[in-house]
Design a binder for these strands. Structure first.
Lengths: 164, 164
DNA sequence: TTGAATTAGTTAGCTATGCTAACTAATTTG
DNA sequence: CAAATTAGTTAGCATAGCTAACTAATTCAA
């Protein structure tokens, strides 16, 4: 890579004027937010190969790892409104990746992933995971452990919202 | 929150059949990927208040913290094609958040953030940061330290791509 | 027990954000 | 100085988000 195409964007604590120096919590919040954005942005490129959009992949992932869900549950999980979920599921259904079945309460539709959908999801996940795992191979065992602990903390933090 | 509206989606190692048990690196990759997605998804809601879309906010953030950039540089940083950046910048310009200036090489356009744009960005960032900081206040000092170390590791991992 | 309210999901139509192909204008190069 | 390259835009398409207004099914209350 030539010097002038090299990225120059390096996150640092905002240079704008503040009344007081940032607390450790503020610095940590800033750092982990930037890190999460940069991680996902750098992995996003791998997605194009799968032929399903990111919204569809995310839903597939919920269905594969979490089992069948209704439309409203999916919308809630994905933090999306119901009409948006309708469109996403219709598209997945069109491609044979999910099926909708209605049960006793005929207002509700249970969305199930098909075997084909599961294969697609696992292949698409692998695109990201393979890249991420390759990069993580350079880390030491204790660094890996740090990431695992951080992941647990972040999951707790992310749920803060839904429990409040 | 009633029990049946409570989210049931808890990330766990994929249940599909594997030839061998996952290595620690694979588990860590899976965990940190899920954690980053869930963190950002849960913070995304705060953005609506700012009146600027996420793409615009992200560009503003690059300009505020990284200084003026050309269209091509921004497209590269944001991992977006040039026509997409053209549209994003046009919108920001329309709202008076950035300015375009041409220099010696009149093919190139330097994009500068305006004082108004800087105010908007900082307010929008704060929306996310305030929420994140509140949630992080429950963590211990050593947990915060873990997150900071993890953030450093993740920044290194994310750059893996651009250095290869 | 039936009429009103609630719940689940869809339709229609808008906006924002991504892409490629094809273009203009400016600069560099042979 | 003509040809090739570079920077950016225009046009047109797809996906993904939203709200408002709708249908159909269920629940609740008089």
């Amino acid at each position: 890579m030539s010097p002038d195409t090299m990225p120059t964007w390096i996150p640092r604590w905002p240079p704008y004027k503040r009344r007081r120096p940032p607390t450790p919590t503020e610095q940590a919040a800033y750092a982990i937010h930037s890190a999460a954005i940069h991680l996902l942005r750098s992995l996003r490129r791998q997605d194009v190969r799968s032929g399903v959009g990111p919204a569809g992949l995310s839903v597939l992932s919920v269905l594969v790892f979490g089992g069948p869900k209704t439309m409203a549950e999916l919308a809630d999980i994905e933090q999306v409104k119901k009409p948006t979920m309708t469109r996403i599921i219709k598209s997945l259904e069109y491609w044979g990746l999910v099926e909708r079945k209605s049960g006793t309460d005929r207002r509700k539709l249970e969305v199930h992933v098909t075997p084909h959908g599961e294969r697609i999801l696992i292949r698409a996940r692998s695109n990201r995971m393979v890249v991420l795992e390759e990069r993580m191979e350079r880390l030491s065992a204790s660094e890996i452990a740090t990431l695992v602990r951080a992941a647990q903390l972040l999951e707790r933090i992310s749920k803060g919202e839904t429990l409040s």
